[in-house]
């Protein structure tokens, strides 16, 4: 048997950089260094572990939608051990919202062919965490999301979802969409051998016409949401800092009492 895994990854501006908005209120991707979203590394890792624990013939494809530089994210995933990559790139994608992104990803996943989609829990820039659920809805397959543990055996995916009020064991038949959290297990570092091998792995480039998506279905014009304004949060006014000379706890209590917290 074969098992075709597609891992969706996102190229994001570095969270430790000075992230900001461009004039058209889209995320500025030019002035801040980009990288593979940290939370997607967990998805790549779990796909690799599923592959390593499987008797099936597993093929892992990493898929991204993004500008030219997004290839860096694919290279990182390939150097971790994924087999091949697909890069959907098109100027008309600029400004696409989560619903539109899920359309592009779903069409690309269908075109690539899949038994299992593995995503991260959210991107580190948008942070909504809704794309995996949207993919399941679009692909018409079970959603097995926010897993801190995942396994695949005999065409069935199982996992543990730790929610606010309970921890749940989930089970679904393949094909399915899975997302994994940062609790699923530390992602491996690419080895030197992996980095060298990644350079020879195939990266396919698709555009909107390859996916039979009309340009008015995506981009800023095709978005179902609109950003009216973006303002930098005013810096917090400098607070009072005291050095503990033995009375620090009491001084803090005095402050809290003054603010009516005690």
């Amino acid at each position: 048997m074969s098992l075709r895994i597609v891992v969706t990854v996102k190229y994001v501006p570095d969270a430790t950089g000075d992230r900001h908005f461009a004039d058209d209120l889209t995320v500025d991707r030019d002035d801040v260094d980009g990288l593979l979203s940290e939370l997607d590394e967990y998805a790549v890792e779990q796909a690799l572990q599923i592959s390593e624990n499987s008797d099936d013939d597993v093929e892992i494809t990493v898929l991204t939608v993004g500008p030219e530089d997004a290839k860096d994210a694919l290279r990182k995933a390939l150097s971790m051990g994924a087999d091949k990559a697909i890069h959907v790139e098109d100027d008309d994608l600029h400004g696409t919202d989560a619903i539109g992104t899920s359309l592009v990803l779903a069409k690309a996943i269908e075109k690539a062919g899949f038994d299992l989609v593995v995503s991260g829990m959210a991107s580190t820039d948008g942070t909504a965490g809704i794309v995996p659920a949207l993919l399941a809805e679009r692909l018409g397959v079970p959603q097995v999301t926010l897993l801190s543990e995942v396994s695949v055996e005999d065409g069935v995916v199982k996992g543990r979802r730790d929610g606010d009020t309970a921890s749940e064991q989930l089970e679904a038949s393949l094909p399915a969409v899975v997302s994994v959290t940062d609790q699923s297990g530390e992602a491996r570092y690419p080895s030197f051998k992996g980095i060298m091998a990644a350079k020879k792995k195939p990266v396919e480039a698709w555009d909107l016409s390859d996916l039979e998506i009309e340009t008015d279905e995506v981009g800023l014009e095709g978005a179902w949401t609109a950003v009216d304004s973006a303002a930098e949060r005013p810096a917090r006014t400098a607070g009072t800092i005291v050095k503990d000379e033995g009375e620090g706890g009491k001084q803090l209590a005095e402050f809290l009492a003054g603010q009516k917290f005690i």
Binding site: G239, V242, E247
Partner: peptide, 16 residues
């Protein structure tokens, strides 16, 4: 912070 204490939390927190 609105208020900060530079000190050892093992001293400051129990006192608070």
């Amino acid at each position: 912070v609105d208020y900060g204490v530079v000190g050892d939390l093992f001293d400051v927190v129990p006192q608070l």
